[in-house]
């Protein structure tokens, strides 16, 4: 997963393009570029939800 994230922890245009290709989607470059900011925001939201969920699980785990 880390290779998909830029040093600024952001989904790069290149990585987004590769993810689309991996899903069998051949999307015009201008559409990819237009969607990139929203995709980066979504990815950041997803990472935050994962972190929040891990924190809740740790809080719930009596062994931690």
């Amino acid at each position: 997963m880390n290779e998909l994230i830029s040093p600024a922890d952001q989904l790069t245009a290149k990585a987004f393009s590769r993810l689309l290709a991996e899903q069998g989607l051949s999307i015009a470059p201008e559409d990819q570029a237009a969607a990139l900011t929203a995709a980066q925001h979504l990815r950041a939201q997803a990472e935050q939800v994962c972190a929040a969920w891990r924190a809740m699980e740790a809080d719930d785990d009596p062994s931690v």
Partner: peptide, 8 residues
Amino acid sequence: RNLITGAA
């Protein structure tokens, strides 16, 4: 453009 964001 909205739909493809899900690939992230």
